[in-house]
Design a protein around this nucleic acid. Sequence first.
RNA 1: GCCCCCUUAGCUCAGCGGUAGAGCAACUGAUUUGUAAUCAGUAGGUCGGCGGUUCGAAUCCGUCAGGGGGCUCCA
Length: 638
Amino acid sequence: MQRLLHWQGQTYEVQAEADEPLYAILEHLGLPAGTAILTAKADGKIHELQAPVGNHTEFHLLGWDAPEGKYVFWHSSAHILAEAILSLRPEAKPTIGPPIENGFYYDIDFGSSPISPEDFQRIEERFLELAGQPEYFVRKKVSLEQAIDYYEKQKNPYKVELIRELPPDDITFYESGGFVDLCKGPHLWHSGPIRAVKVLSLAGAYWRGDSRKPQLTRVYAISFPEKQLLDEYVAFLEEASKRDHRHLGRVLRLFSFHEEGPGFPFWHPKGMRLLNALQDWMRGKLLRRGYEEIKTPLILTQRLWEQSGHYENYRENMYFTEIDEQPYAIKPMNCPGSTIVYRTERRSYRDLPLRLFEFGLVHRHELSGVLTGLFRVRAFTQDDAHIYCTPDQIESEITDLLHLVNEVYDAFGFTQREIYLSTRPEKYIGSLELWAQAEGALAAALQSAGLSYQINPGEGAFYGPKIDFIVRDSLRRRWQLGTVQLDFSMPRRFGLEYIGPDGQPHVPVMIHRAILGSFERFIGVLLEHTGGELPLWLAPVQVKIVPVSEKYVEYAREIARDLAQRGVRWSIDESDEKLGKKIREAEQEKIPLIWVVGAQEAENRTVSIRDRLFRRRYDGIPLAQAIEETWKAVQSPS
RNA sequence: GCCCCCUUAGCUCAGCGGUAGAGCAACUGAUUUGUAAUCAGUAGGUCGGCGGUUCGAAUCCGUCAGGGGGCUCCA
């Protein structure tokens, strides 16, 4: 039978019998099977090199650059990791070990002989020893009885539990070296390409993610086909840790956290400059887009939350209080407050769409263990808005919204984004017809905006479908920011209506949306994206005036007055230090513009500008010109 | 909340059973500085809190608090 093989832009034609393994064909052709070629794809599925070619006629050969290549590589690495760990801890019970976005892990029950980071080096050494032999991955079909018998002898109840849930006629083991693992594959042909490994961390993980079940130890690791790639990855981790927003928040004096209020950020003066600049910009943008701003109370009666359904579904995450012996709750979301504003007036179809936004401060009781800097806090400010519209306005509203979202993300250089459309889940409210219309409107809007997106089937909220936005930062890490949710439930629960052209009351559709998500979290993401080098329009200090010596402080103060008058955020270094030191400090503060003034500048009424963004210096710029150009440059994007 | 790890001066960290250290920051003085660290000096810590073991605890054990990494990307 004729087969076509694709590799690096070339196509190879060969004759091969169905029982011939793919690697044999590759070797015959002189292709780098099991080295550069890690695995293959046939008919849309991964096809292992060691598997017979069967009836497939076309194969795409894949290397390290392909996601499938990495997947198989790391999956096989997980087996070797388990084998390495078991050789050091024979009593340990392996459970599951999948590849993940960056590397792989293996969940292991260590019983009474836990491991610690001190063991990492020995595990890595053992791993490389095993991988270097190399070990061949051999697939074996086993019967239910054989499989259970094997793991009962190993005293591994986890694997037995997994086996019992599998279709009895489709159970496979993979054997590599002396290690046998229940596994569906696919795997590398052999471990030869695995040349470098790093055990990254240990973490607790519940068996099957269930907090009532035993807690296992998750060993995270990553492996590579070349040592150099590992070195690059380690360098990436170091860069990421330098950009940690919790660290930057402290050294740039933006915000802090304290025992007195775990999960509640304290914003310092410079942090407030940033937060306010961001909010002012967003506010201006929304007002120009036909939104109107509202502000609703932080504390509202418990009865309201019962009516909204939050009390029933979200109580665990809410804070409660009491006023005049009546139960109240601190708002975890802004929507109920918004609906109260809506229904304060009799609304007509002519009023729709009604776009109400609120920079709403919400409080949520997050579990202490999940709090992480500004990424996960217990009090935060959403750039929240609720759009009330008729069903046939959904598409145009969403289209507008998508343009707005693009504009906002572009302003920060978040040019790589992913969009997910989540559709009707099993449990839902509202008619199928309404769902179909809503999902259709969201999809149509995405298409008409020319945006590519993926569908998460059944992942929508019970009250409506949604769109989620994920951006990638400069280190290619993914962050979920905005979300757009259609809601058929709350307008009904709160008895919202508008009078249609027919003179009859109708229930409006409610669109919940946030673009930044929350200002706090967004600032965290932005700090990591920029490494603290914020764009000029957001920098807490845009210009730092540095007098060469104390003699020129007076001139510096005069410049500051002019800058302040133009709304430019400034500071002066009046310390008794040498110029080099002052420059160094300003650079470390990541201030975009440093204006140096000394004898020459004071005499000629000029400044010497050091521009961090373009790494350039401009000497002898006349003061008036410098101020005018700086004023222009600090303006926020439209 | 649960698991593992961590908590020493404002920050970054060393010390790991014999009674507390460095660098930077702060303060004082000298210096008046030309584009990434001037020199000298001073001060600062009940070693996260509480309890225990010990002749003796920053160091060992327990506990509480806070922080970090995680807690279905699934054979």
